[in-house]
Design a protein around this nucleic acid. Structure first.
Length: 186
DNA sequence: ATCCAGATGGTC
DNA sequence: ACCATCTGGATA
């Protein structure tokens, strides 16, 4: 397991997002390590992208998207759920990847390991299961502590691209195929 | 299986 | 007023 460095994230979001499928999201909480394989992501680009939080410019909430890549962007949605994003792109170029789904999550301590809900779908549930909240907003993921993205020597998964979820307000931008899912058994 | 209302609070 | 959502209950 190798920790992904800033160089990986500091590229165009449409390049980074699909490559994040199959990577591992690892969260150290106390003496426990929660890890999960990323299986679903969405790309959100700069101010032009009418589905992106960056469309209003660097507001207090979205300003993190305009900063350096490799930072966590966690926001509250619908008053009760948190959503976890990874900032991408070069500094000043706003973009981020929303992590919507993980699989083969596991919890491990010094003594042993136990499976977590083998599957999660939806960004809110994901944060719930992995214990990610707005307190993690602005965290540098490239340090790996307490949160990081790791690579693993595995064959690249095959992907399916679809429009993004829940962005019908975004006009023509809503139909762009900027959501990627690991192609799985039917 | 699908449909839908309600919860709940930050953001613009 | 509007959400990058989820749940439980109703319907079929």
């Amino acid at each position: 397991m190798s920790l992904l460095k800033r160089r990986f994230f500091a590229r165009p979001v449409l390049e980074v997002a699909p490559e994040l499928i199959g990577k591992y999201l690892v969260h150290q909480v106390g003496d426990e390590t929660l890890s999960a394989r990323i299986v679903e992501v969405e790309a959100y680009a700069g101010p032009e992208d009418q589905a992106s939080h960056a469309r209003f410019g660097p507001t207090p909430r979205a300003k993190i998207m305009f900063g350096p890549a490799g930072m966590a962007y966690v926001y509250l949605i619908y008053g009760m759920y948190d959503c976890f994003n990874i900032v991408t792109g070069t500094d000043g170029e706003a973009s981020a990847v929303l992590v919507r789904g993980v699989a083969v999550a596991s919890r491990s301590t010094g003594s042993g390991s136990s499976p977590l809900p083998g599957k999660t779908n939806g960004p809110g549930k994901l944060c719930r299961v992995l214990g990610i909240t707005r307190k993690h907003n602005g965290l540098d993921l490239t340090t790996g502590v307490p949160l990081g993205i790791h690579d693993r020597k595995e064959p690249p998964p095959s992907l399916t691209a679809t429009p993004r979820i829940g962005v019908d307000y975004a006009g023509e931008w809503a139909s762009r195929p900027w959501r990627w899912v690991e192609a799985g058994p039917r």
